Amino acid sequence: MELVAMLPVHNEAGRYLPRVLDQLSQLADLIVVYDDASTDATPALLARYPWVRAFRGRQPWFPRHEAQLRHHLWRLTVRFRPRWILALDADELFEERALAELPPLLAGRDYDAVAFRLFDFWKGEEQVRVDGAWNPWNRFSPLLVRYRPELPDTWPDQVIHCGRLPLAYRELVTFQSHLRVRHYGWARGGEHLAKYLFYRERDLAQYGRVSAHTESVLAPRVTLEPWIPLEPAPFFRSRRQPERR
């Protein structure tokens, strides 16, 4: 397969997962999902998508050890022998022009990984946070890699913030794409306190202290920028849209 997307999910039926799956169904040949013991309608939602291969856990892994969850998801994904693997979360979407601009990235030969800027939408879907470590303009995240079966698939032994790819894949030659990824995990302001407490507890377990980035979740003042949609560049607009396989 050319492109397989992988993502972990947990109780996402009433959130952004339908939008994510709708988009990935146009971009990827297959979507491998690890359902981390959801208790809502997430399994029924996943069953409605013909391009999804869902695997379900009995007990949630993410709150206990994120690295083990990511490692397991990776091994489920590589069973399908993809040429490329895309690692997203259930609240992340590419901007719309990805339909035209992602296929040329998969055709590249001078790199084995592609990194993207992640924009954190803040208390709504019209604005993104750009202060401090939230600034997306100088921060690229590798999310797309060419599968190299000869590389080891080890992960750091971390409860949280373990990364989405095996350690060996983080050393590959990487292309920095101008395509943007929209992260909606902070778009609902009413969830900020609960998410802060979640990450605070795991920071203490892993580092013995609360990171400055976690503390900044509840900062009284933040810097926001409006989200401005962008059209595909003329070169991509002139290309015929790929047919869904």
Rank of each mutant, 00 (worst) to 15 (best):
L30N: 08
T223Q: 00
R70M: 12
A90I: 04
F119T: 02
L144M: 07
R109C: 09
L3C: 10
S216H: 10
Y207G: 09
H161K: 08
R164K: 12
R109A: 11
A168S: 11
R109Q: 13
Q127S: 12
E243G: 14
A107G: 10
D40K: 01
H213M: 11
D131I: 11
G132H: 10
V145M: 06
H10R: 11
S177F: 01
G108S: 10
R109I: 07
L230C: 05
V217T: 07
E2H: 13
V52G: 11
E215A: 02
F119K: 06
A168I: 11
G185H: 08
D157I: 15
P104M: 12
V128M: 04
D131G: 09
V20L: 05
T39D: 13
T154D: 15
Y199H: 15
E101L: 10
G14V: 03
H192T: 05
E225I: 03
Y49C: 09
E101V: 06
W61L: 13
R170L: 13
P149R: 05
R139K: 14
L86P: 00
H71N: 14
I85Q: 05
R245A: 02
L102W: 01
L179C: 08
Y147I: 02
A187T: 09
A168Y: 07
V114C: 06
D112R: 13
E12M: 13
M1R: 00
R15A: 07
P18V: 02
E125Y: 01
A44Q: 15
L179N: 02
